[in-house]
Design a protein around this nucleic acid. Structure first.
Lengths: 236, 236
DNA sequence: AACAGGAATATGTCTATACAAAAGGAATTG
DNA sequence: CAATTCCTTTTGTATAGACATATTCCTGTT
């Protein structure tokens, strides 16, 4: 069933699958040491580079653990990694088949509040834009967005009025490849959030917070609140 | 500042960084076509395989988009990918410095309820184990776990009593490399959940649901509820 | 027994070359 | 004009060989 008798050719995908299946059927148990690349490449009848890529990717995926000289082992505690896609709100809504609507609620220029200075390292002398807006899926409230943007980092933002394009979307196109921290939590709807999401105060909301930097320069902080029906999904 | 004058040697990491920085400084804007691998390998003074690995990894990370014959472009709408670590509860608590405590609440053998048959494809003739348990961080409730395990898929589970080891941990060590679906949402605490998490009914809880299969065979479904203070964090 | 140093070894990466496969584009044909 | 076929470009992958680098393990010394 194994022992590749030079069928077609052995690609790194096949090697990966074979290794995975051997882990599944307990040929190699948790923590166990696998044969070296040279030995495996001999078994599979392929080049070492092929086995290397297979094992390297499996390590990247959290299945194997590799150390020079020590060899490759099956990971003990599968600290699993879940990968979520974080699309632009409009795309997320449109993908569900519903019509997307957007409304600007508030736009003001302020000096950064203390918590924002502390959270992101915004300079107290700088000014920030505070934007609140709503995203709708059809006629249902989908997301309330409360966002702060560092003007010093993105001067052009003063020209953007956000009446037709959401700050989310505007920033994504304007600031490439920024570093971000995201967190998710559950929270009670404040009066303000409840009003916009058409809930009662205190009802549960799903909250996503996102802080973004470009090369250590604070760009934006956003708090996005979803009604209880929202679900963040991932398969792995 | 660029044009690698054969300093040391050009590795795929350097190529990656260089490409990323050129995207950041808008040398290559969103959607723009990059030079081909051959041309870039000439510019960088390295082999095509090196450029290939750099670009391939950047594509994997969601920065570039590659298509045969069409070439490589900077991704337009950075559908960002967030990667979360999903550790074992005990490790998560212990990593925070707190003492971990665990308590089994309920363990019963049943025929699978309809929703479980529908959700996971459990055979109605099979039996399932229903387990409820609590995880504490110090003296504070950390997570309420409500889990169903397909006995047909993991016969050994009938011998496990889960009084000292949580089903989470037991399964992770017993069933390797299973496929899973995870979802997160916010919800109101039911009377039962509120009692165990020491909350009032209706207070918001953070809910993680997880369904697991091994080669299409349904293994387990778990619903894990956290108090409002819980945060799922990722940086990218 | 403790420690230092060196040899051995497994992985990490780069190179050059070759062929495969996808897909855009042009030429051909109905 | 539209559909089809074929050519060509670009990425995808495999290979053999080489050297780099991190670590373990062993050995000899104190």
């Amino acid at each position: 069933m194994s022992e590749n008798a030079s069928a077609e050719r052995t690609g790194f995908r096949e090697v990966k699958e074979d290794i995975v299946s051997r882990i599944k059927n307990r040929t190699w148990g948790p923590g166990e040491l696998l044969p070296g690349e040279v030995e495996l490449s001999r078994q599979f009848g392929c080049a070492r580079a092929t086995v290397n890529r297979a094992m390297r990717e499996l390590a990247e995926e959290g299945v194997l653990e590799r150390k020079r000289k020590a060899g490759t082992r099956v990971v003990q505690n599968p600290v699993r990694h879940a990968r979520f896609e974080i699309p632009i709100v409009r795309h997320e809504v449109e993908a569900s088949g519903a019509e997307y609507r957007y409304a600007l609620v508030k736009r003001e220029v302020l000096t950064p509040p203390d918590w924002l200075q502390a959270r992101m390292g915004v300079n107290s002398a700088d000014r920030v834009i505070h934007v609140q807006c709503m995203h709708y899926s059809g006629n249902s409230p989908y997301q309330f967005e409360d966002r702060w943007i560092n003007i010093a980092a993105v001067p052009k933002v003063e020209q953007a009025d956000f009446t037709s394009t959401s700050p989310n979307e505007w920033l994504v196109n304007e600031v490439p490849l920024s570093k971000a921290e995201i967190s998710f939590s559950a929270s009670s709807a404040s009066d303000e959030v409840a009003r916009f999401l058409e809930l009662k105060s205190g009802e549960p909301v799903f909250v996503a917070e996102r802080a973004t930097w470009l090369e250590e320069l604070p760009i934006t902080y956003a708090r996005m609140s979803f009604p209880e029906s929202y679900r963040l999904v991932s398969s792995l």
